[in-house]
Each structure stands twice: as C-alpha cells, then as structure tokens.
Computed example of a mutant assay.
Amino acid sequence: MEQKLVGILLNAAAHRGVPQGRTGWESLACYEEAADAYGLTPCYLKLADIDPVSGCSAVYIKSQQGYKRVVIPIPEVIHNRAIYPSGNTGTQRLAARGVKVFNLHSRYGKDEIHRLLSLDSGLVGHLPGTDTGSGGLIRMMEQYPDLILKPRRGSIGKGIMRLRRKDKESWTLEYLHHGQRASVHIHPARLPGPLLRRVDGSSYLIQERIPLAEAGGRPFDLRVTVQRGWGGEWVVTGLFAKLAPPGGFVSNIARGGEAATASFALEQAFPARAAAHYRMSAAGLALAVARCLERGLPGLADIGLDIGVTRDGQLFFIECNGRDQRYGFIKAGLPEIWKDSYRRPMGYARYLLDGGAER
C-alpha cells in the first residue's frame, strides 16, 4: 500500500504543542499508529499556515529527530479536529479548491441539530420538548416541571442551567458559578431580567429535562462515538457512560462528571437483560441520528452523540458533538476503544485518498 499524507487540522494551541508532544488529549502517537496501519503519514497543520493561493502549507511531520516543520502541497485529505468561531470559512475554502475535508465543521448549533432531526419522523419521538426565547421559556414552564437551559453553541457543559418547579409559586434556577453549584429561587410571574435577556438573545435553547436513569443515585447519559471508516459507512466505534457528580445535573466530564463503562452504569439502573437491550438500542439510535444528520451537514464523518435512557427505558437524543472528546474512553477504562476512535478516521482518510466518494 502506497504511503500517503493525511492532514490533521488542529487549533493553534494544540498545534503549538506538537514539537513537544504536548497536545492535550489529542494523541499524536495514536494518530501515527492508526495512520501507519493504512499506509498513511499524518501531518499536523493549522489554518493560518495554509496558503490557498500557492497551494502549500507548513506542517509538522514526525522524523527520527522529532517533529520537523516543512512546507508541502496542501494534503488531499484533511481530518478537521479544530473548532473555529461561527462564521469562519477556512475549511469551506479548502473544500472549494478540491481538498477533501471531513468533519468540515466541528461545532453545530444545538437548534440546527434539533431542526434537522425533527424532520425525520422516525426520530421525533426521541427528541426532548424544545423551545426558544422568553415566550418559549414561559410555554415550557407551563408544560414541564423540570427544564434544561443550554447555550446553542456551548461545549463541555459550560453555561448549562437547570430550572425546576419548587411549588406553585416558585421555581429554582441552578447553575455552576466558578465550578461551584449555585441556585436562586424565582417567581414565574417575575422572571429575572438577566435570564430573559439570555434566552431572548438567540443564544440559549430551552429543553425538557429528561428523567435520566441513575447509577448509585447519579443521573447518567451515554456518549456514543459514531464514525465513518474504511468503506465510508457509519459504524459505532464504542460508547461509555457519563455520570453526573453527586447532587449535580451536568454529566460532562469537564464539569465534574465521571466516565464509566456503559454496561456498569446500565446494570446499576436496570436488570442485566434490559441493560444489554438499552445498550444496543442506544447504539442503533446513534446510527439513525448520524444517517439523518449527514443529509443536512456535508462532510460529517466523526461525531460523539449523547443518548439518554429514562428510568422507564425510553431513549432520547440529547446532543451532538462535532469534535468528540475521545479521552472519555480512557477515563472509562477502555483504552482499546480509545485507540479505535483514532483508527477509524484514518481508515476513512485512506478510503477518500483511494478515490472513495465523500458522503
């Protein structure tokens, strides 16, 4: 198999750390091992070093002397692992000149994802009640006793708030303040101005809070990694559970959540046979979500989906992560699946380099 280059597009901070091998949870060794299995050599680049006019880019490539910075023609295939502000068109410009960029975008608005999924009649029943704006907040408070308010473009659980009914006259708004849980009581007829400004500013989505199953009294959801590999088809690479901290409502690992195997968490909440059924059903739902999203999101190839299982066994889609934080597999004690999450995209890169059609 002919050795070819594959680009790994990183944010500037991670890219700066390549020469020292300090790229956070982006494992250069895993990229290199996975790429080698498909006859590929990874080169690490950032948007600022790509010159569409000359058709060249400065990249880092590993040599016997360490990572060497060289100038090469822009790689034919690039796996996007960077996050850019809304409105950045760098990856689209690359695609316009014929570069095959998979995961063309790595962050999508939660409202956009909800809209696309709501067009699929088979998925509507797996979507939580959702609304926007101050009018939507009032409607949702009239319909549901427990709500989650989340930034449309937030990540790792930052900015998420919980609003739940305390009694007929008051609600409790819970949030994280400098990493600590805080709360305030509010009256539905006198909603705080700062809260209304947030939800009216088109930056927040209001959703029914799903009564998640619990493991040891801790609510959890399932992170399902769904990727394209050799051949271009969607495959579930693996899944793990994210447990909220004791007394908390956000399961994100970066916000104090804990990773565990899906089997462990599900078997804490359900009998073994039911737990196995829900595990397989979550994987099936994740595949259906990926296949639906690909119709509206060009270049989609590597995503992490959060799937919730309720106490009575219903499955709900919660969130799509365009840059899946794979380190959860390590924290859940699943190192081989962690490595697989690098292998599969490199298989897809080889498929594209060999003339496979982008999906």
Rank of each mutant, 00 (worst) to 15 (best):
A96R: 02
A286M: 02
G201R: 10
G256W: 00
A82D: 08
Q325C: 14
C320Q: 07
I210K: 02
L119D: 15
V199L: 07
G248V: 00
T132S: 15
L222G: 05
P188E: 13
Y38E: 07
V224Y: 10
V99Q: 14
T237F: 07
A301N: 03
Y144R: 01
G154N: 14
D167V: 00
G304M: 01
R359Q: 09
L10R: 03
A82Y: 04
Y144M: 02
F264K: 03
G247L: 00
R69L: 12
P345G: 12
L45H: 12
R81C: 00
G7C: 11
R115E: 13
P188V: 08
R93D: 15
V101N: 12
A290F: 10
G87P: 13
A95F: 09
E169V: 05
S27V: 15
C56A: 07
I72P: 02
E336N: 07
K168Q: 13
T225L: 06
G87L: 08
E112M: 01
G133E: 15
R209C: 06
K68S: 03
R115F: 14
A95T: 12
S202C: 14
V184W: 03
V77I: 11
L149V: 12
V224Q: 09
V59I: 09
Q92K: 12
G157F: 03
A288N: 03
V309A: 13
P188S: 11
L47E: 15
A58Y: 04
F317C: 04
I303V: 04
R22L: 07
W171D: 00
T41D: 14
I318H: 04
L10M: 10
L297T: 07
P345K: 08
A241L: 02
R22Y: 06
W171Y: 02
A254W: 03
A13P: 03
R359L: 11
Y84N: 12
E233I: 00
N321S: 08
L47I: 11
D49E: 14
V59K: 09
E26C: 06
G328S: 15
R209P: 07
I307K: 04
R115T: 09
V235Y: 00
Q92P: 05
Y342N: 00
L195E: 10
P42H: 13
H105E: 11
V18T: 13
G55I: 05
L94A: 08
Y67P: 09
I186D: 11
A349G: 09
K100V: 05
E336Y: 14
G231Y: 04
G356S: 12
V309L: 14
M280I: 06
T91F: 02
V309F: 15
Y348V: 14
A260R: 01
V289H: 03
R273K: 13
A35Q: 05
I318Q: 01
D306K: 00
V18D: 14
P245I: 00
G98F: 12
T41A: 12
G7N: 07
R209H: 10
L305G: 02
L195G: 09
G296C: 13
L195T: 06
P73Y: 11
A213R: 03
S263P: 08
A349P: 08
A189Q: 10
D49P: 07
H105L: 06
L149P: 11
H105W: 12
I186V: 09
L195S: 10
Y278L: 02
D167R: 02
